[in-house]
Computed example of a mutant assay.
Amino acid sequence: MRYVGIDPSTMTGFVALGSDGVEVQRTKELTGNGKEDPKRMVFLVDEVMEHLRQNDRVCIEGFSYGSQGKFVGQQYGIGWLIRTALFRRGLKYVEVSPGQLKKFASGKGNDSKDNLIIPIYKSWGFQHSSDNVRDAFVLAKISYHLQNPA
């Protein structure tokens, strides 16, 4: 069994932790193939699904409803396509809001992504240049703790 975190976006963070919830087995920032949608989105979802196993315990970051910008539509599209692919494969997932992710990582639900770098490193010794992968790591940790409460 692995514990998986997915931070869906145009650059999707993916982290798989081993059954002990400590060993980092996979870290990846997935971007799909091509520059035009929906092709890029389809390839991105396929890429995410290629990294999953049937007995994975998955946490996925919920939608950031306050987001603005030209890529918000793509983020919702990618998020729903991943959820649909998980459903079709029979993989259950837990949705974690952005605020819950931040609170788990730093104790504050309103931290910026950059402010999570130090708490993630101090708590778990994990570092990565991508904030999407860092978020996926925290989601994988949440997945572990949901299955193994202290």
Rank of each mutant, 00 (worst) to 15 (best):
T31G: 15
S106Q: 04
Y76I: 15
R89M: 04
Y76F: 15
G18P: 04
V58S: 01
F104H: 07
M11Q: 13
D135M: 09
E95G: 09
V96R: 09
T10D: 10
N132P: 08
S19V: 11
L17F: 03
V24M: 07
L116E: 06
F104P: 00
S129G: 13
D20F: 04
H128Y: 09
G32A: 06
F63E: 04
G125C: 03
W80D: 10
A105T: 01
I78W: 05
G18F: 01
V24Y: 02
F104T: 03
E47T: 07
R53N: 14
E61H: 07
I117N: 11
Q74W: 12
D131G: 06
V138R: 08
S67F: 01
K102V: 04
V22N: 13
C59I: 08
F43C: 07
S129A: 13
H145E: 15
G77Y: 07
L52C: 04
N148Q: 11
S143D: 11
A105P: 12
A105H: 02
R40D: 06
F43L: 09
A16I: 05
L44W: 01
W124T: 10
D46W: 01
N33E: 15
M49I: 09
D56F: 06
G109T: 02
L44V: 02
Q127R: 14
L146P: 10
G32R: 05
K70V: 12
V72A: 02
N33M: 12
G13S: 02
S19E: 14
D20N: 12
A140Q: 01
K108T: 03
K103N: 06
Y76K: 14
D56T: 01
D111R: 14
R134A: 11
